[in-house]
């Protein structure tokens, strides 16, 4: 039973991982939190649906969708985010809220608010370990396989290729990278392409895993992805992977606990939030992250400041 829940947690985590790595890459290189990332996933899922009408093959359709979402990423960069450089972290964040509203509601306007479906016929579950784990090869194993291979490819790309090196250099210090001859504009484009590819895959896989498409499907996962990014450590790919595993596994463990203790399982949605706040309280840099935006003062100092303020009179 426990093994089954851990396994479900891994499936959950594998969808979150793809989005979280994208958010993290954008955060590292572009230095802002992309609130439209969930909607980029939705875009991928819907374009997979569109191409499915032409190709009749889910895998081909998903690959075509990848191109569209990557292109959407570059277009956003050129039209919006490139003009918001040197404007601090909040201006692009607000712009990404606008992008999110436009994407999500354009999809709703075009496709209507009702659910869509890829129309997959799911085969019977496979049973492992003498009944300990029961799993559906398409619903569960496909997401895991896609996540594992895409994550490995991303890690290899970042670690061993020249492009990955340039991306890491730009994330570290944009000006130094530029001085050393890195074409940071191309690096930005490649980052958007990579984030778009991962988001699109994640969206298609999400559609395969839950079986239905809705215009808000990605936006509802945004909170979980942000929690994964912060728990793991913002700006670190390893962190995004670790954070997604922690968040996914604790969500499914909470489900198990709620079954045993009679707690309402709907509170599962509060788990990422609790993890996020706990991380911010105890270790704001996350499991493996580095501080971003200057040194962070310990909470004790801040609370002492607050009490000092209250003692001296409220205003």
């Amino acid at each position: 039973m426990v093994v089954q829940f851990l396994f479900n947690g891994l499936v959950q985590a594998s969808i979150v991982i793809l989005g979280a790595i994208g958010i993290n890459l954008l955060y590292g290189v572009k230095k802002f939190a992309n609130f439209a990332h969930g909607d980029m996933m939705t875009l991928g899922a819907y374009f997979t649906f569109v191409f499915l009408g032409g190709t009749r093959d889910l895998m081909t359709a998903a690959i075509w969708a990848v191109f569209v979402v990557a292109l959407a990423g570059v277009v956003q960069e050129v039209l919006i985010y490139a003009r918001l450089e040197n404007r601090g972290p909040v201006a692009p964040l607000v712009a990404s809220i606008g992008v999110s509203l436009v994407m999500q509601n354009s999809l709703t306007t075009y496709f209507g608010p009702a659910f869509l479906s890829y129309g997959i016929r799911y085969p019977d579950n496979w049973v492992f370990f003498g009944g300990a784990v029961s799993t559906n090869p398409i619903r569960d194993l496909v997401p895991m396989a896609v996540a594992a291979s895409a994550t490995t490819a991303t890690v290899v790309l970042l670690k061993y290729t020249k492009l990955g090196k340039a991306m890491r250099a730009t994330a570290d210090n944009r000006d130094l990278a530029r001085v050393s001859g890195v074409n940071t504009r191309v690096v930005y484009w490649m980052t958007w392409i990579l984030a778009g590819v991962l988001a699109s895959l994640s969206g298609s896989v999400l559609g395969v895993s839950i079986g239905t498409l809705a215009p808000s499907m990605g936006a509802t996962l945004l909170l979980t992805m942000f929690a994964a990014v912060i728990v793991g450590g913002i700006g670190s790919t390893t962190g995004a992977i670790l954070g997604s595993l922690v968040v996914g596994l604790s969500q499914s463990l909470f489900f198990l606990v709620s079954l045993v203790s009679g707690l309402d399982p709907r509170w599962q949605i509060a788990v990422p939030f609790a993890l996020l706040v706990a991380t911010l309280l105890v270790k704001p840099t996350g499991l493996v992250g580095r501080p971003i935006g200057g040194e962070i003062r310990p909470l004790r100092t801040e609370i002492a400041e607050m009490l000092k303020g209250i003692r001296r009179g409220l205003f």
Partner: peptide, 29 residues
Amino acid sequence: AIPTLRLRADYLAIATLALGAIAVESIRN
């Protein structure tokens, strides 16, 4: 605000986004 105000502006953004979602879910549940 206590844990997040000491961090960069976007941490507060993420934490409050989460809070907004959780507040509504808690009301629903």
